[in-house]
Design a protein around this nucleic acid. Structure first.
Lengths: 195, 195
DNA sequence: CCAGGATCGAACCGACCGGTACCATCTGAA
DNA sequence: TTCAGATGGTACCGGTCGGTTCGATCCTGG
């Protein structure tokens, strides 16, 4: 049955729905872990629709990664900005949010980093790099508010802790990775504030 | 020409040569980034030889990952053990070695973590988990020698820093990731030693 | 009510994949 | 000298991949 019986025809909405659903499936199975045919079946969409909206599978992948990066950065930014003014509290809230993510059954590491590992192409690596840059800006803001001598340096160290915690949570024990990274981050923050 | 004219026939040596060469190619191109045919061409080996030694492509991948993990752990263990008795010096040597790795043109992140991301199977994840465990043992030894209250906790934090530095070096700037992680590690070490 | 666009379902395509089979050729030990 | 085994080269297999096409069906704006 072409065009579901009660469905509204709205290309924009269709596109958004595809991106949203594909985000989960591609994260769970990996970019190459599922073919276009099965992917379309999961999304409840025909191949023609998918190719009209995204051109190629890579086009869908890029759209998925772009929106996922935006969502993650917004999520963390909101988490930080809604946890008061003190840098220590903001870091605590950030790592607590990450820990909550690690604890979920669907956790599979950072989707952007994973994607860049699976598709080592300029396009995907650029999206991942932009994602990391956004992450870094958020952390730089915290480091600046803390009055660190070299905010960029501290921010990079915090980024290392966050990404490292994500890797360790995925491949060792997810139970305490966020918490341990948080303690380390607070220690670095305290040292930077003292100077 | 079957069997190169001057080559020695030695199955063990052939196998080791295949593993060694495949390690580089699979790291550079990714586990799924190269087919068996092209892989064999690169290795200078026929498909029949490869399949007689490893059964399947996965068999080769597992052998490659096993030996790579051993090599990395030995490399880091040697680096640490040949840098004196002071934990701070050992950590400095370890992160300096990592930084040297990041700076190389062939650096593409941690091969074991990458593999587990590309092939999310029990077998590969088990190899990666064992690799991380070996990494952790090395760091735990350092934390114990430092007299930390909770050596396992400090070791996990150091592991987070090392893996995080590897990720950041791969996807942001490789220039200072190891150095910054090292400074953070030394700060944590100093705090643990004070208590 | 009609025309045009959005969608589905399915068939189809060429390319490539992992894996197998066969044979000529060379090595190394008996 | 002989012969079993290791190897290279090549053709081949079924399956799956990303991508295209087509017709039937349904929505929606005019």
């Amino acid at each position: 049955m072409p065009v579901a019986k009660g469905s509204t025809i709205d290309p924009e909405r269709t596109r958004a729905t595809i991106v949203h659903a594909a985000t989960q499936v591609l994260y769970e199975r990996g970019l190459d872990g599922i073919g276009v045919a099965e992917l379309c079946a999961r999304l409840g969409v025909s191949k023609e629709t998918l190719y009209r909206h995204f051109g190629t599978k890579d086009g869908l992948v890029h759209a998925v990664l772009d929106t996922r990066s935006d969502r993650v950065i917004h999520w963390l930014t909101d988490t930080v900005s809604s946890s008061g003014d003190r840098p220590a509290d903001q870091l605590t809230a950030l790592f607590r949010a990450l820990q909550g993510w690690y604890d979920g059954p669907e956790f599979r590491g950072c989707a952007l980093i994973n994607a860049a590992t699976q598709h080592r192409t300029d396009a995907v690596r650029a999206i991942a790099a932009r994602h990391v840059e956004g992450y870094l800006e958020l952390l730089t803001g915290i480091a600046e508010r803390a009055g660190a001598d070299d905010p960029h340096r501290l921010a990079l160290q915090l980024l290392i802790l966050a990404e490292g915690a994500t890797v360790v949570a995925d491949h060792h024990s997810s139970a305490r990775a966020g918490e341990l990274a948080c303690q380390a981050a607070l220690a670095l923050l305290a040292a930077a504030e003292r100077s």
